[in-house]
Design a protein around this nucleic acid. Structure first.
Lengths: 185, 185
DNA sequence: TTGCTTGTTGAACGATCGTACAACAACTGC
DNA sequence: GCAGTTGTTGTACGATCGTTCAACAAGCAA
């Protein structure tokens, strides 16, 4: 469905405020009426777009991990490095994501979608951390910690690009992971 | 100016989407025309509100640090603990902040305001870390790391409250800080 | 060719948006 | 009491919002 792709492009370019039925329809090259014809409303379209963007992000992260060396630590490092490089760390994806957050606050549907996305993201991270030797009991907190750290770095990297570089973000994240893994004596 | 307070309340309750001139005017108990009379436009009002909310958050953090024991580590811990408790870690403040981010993407004025806020936040954190013995050369990366970690934990704590508790967030942040400080042998 | 289904259009509706402005109330100095 | 300033009101305007719907185009079975 090209309406979803058009919606994603508009969200990336103009943020949540610009994601109107007409803007999306023009972007997709169709008439405004089509949006209501295929989706229950503009919100349902954005919900579907959330799933689409989420899948793309997941695929990009998976590809980075798959392309890395087979050592567990190299795979974990590839995961965080990819988080700070395009197509993940871009102002466009941040704009898209902030649009989703905006709707997650007001509407339950998007909020539930975010919860499951966040849970999947953490379990992906937990698997990588477990392979690096982080023991089971620490896994939950380690996953939350690295997820929060990477999220926070990603956010500020997109929002204030001049504050620090992607390389710095990667170095900082790797240093924290070092601390986490070393501490599991 | 009660318009600013009303704008902050509306942003907290309804997010960026609900922050219209009329909604804010009703919240403040004045007529819609007053907004355009006192501010160049709705955007200028939101920009002023940003400064107001930012000052409130800063004051809450300062108060928490001031109320803590005089030991440097206790002061740092008070800073992060306060970050995960009301009035900082609430869905309302997140909604407000996301509204600001939405505008920061589209408009340069808010973006510059965010940059200075973020820089101030990091330097506050750097001062606390320096007092705990983190040496100068590591200070910059340590500040970015803890700022990102606390931001990420704060974000998910507000967005997915059932994923982990405020106590867990505090414990995770303190554990990471332990690792940072211990490593400066 | 005819009839039916499917996909799409674009105009129209009522609601709401930000802004502008003439009018009105309240207070001040004279 | 009376001008003048200041603060506030509420209506009006044009633009844009999401949604609806009668109408049209295209493909296909009969």
């Amino acid at each position: 469905m090209s309406l979803i792709a058009a919606c994603a492009r508009v969200l990336a370019r103009e943020g949540a405020a610009g994601a109107s039925v007409r803007t999306i329809a023009v972007e997709a090259g169709v008439s405004p009426g089509l949006v209501s014809h295929y989706f229950a409303g503009v919100e349902a379209l954005i919900e579907a777009t959330y799933g689409h963007v989420e899948a793309q992000v997941g695929a990009a992260l998976d590809a980075a991990v798959a392309a890395a060396a087979p050592e567990p630590r190299a795979r974990l490092d590839a995961f965080v490095t990819a988080s700070f490089a395009p197509p993940i760390a871009t102002p466009e994806l941040l704009a898209t994501w902030i649009g989703f957050w905006t709707l997650a606050i007001a509407r339950g549907g998007i909020a539930r979608q975010h919860d499951s996305h966040y849970a999947a993201y953490r379990s992906r991270l937990e698997a990588l951390l477990a392979a690096c030797g982080v023991p089971g009991p620490s896994l939950r907190h380690a996953g939350i910690a690295i997820a929060a750290l990477v999220d926070g770095l990603w956010l500020e990297l997109c929002l204030s690009p001049q504050a620090f570089s992607a390389d710095e973000a990667g170095a900082i994240a790797r240093a924290q992971i070092d601390g986490l893994i070393v501490r599991q004596f």
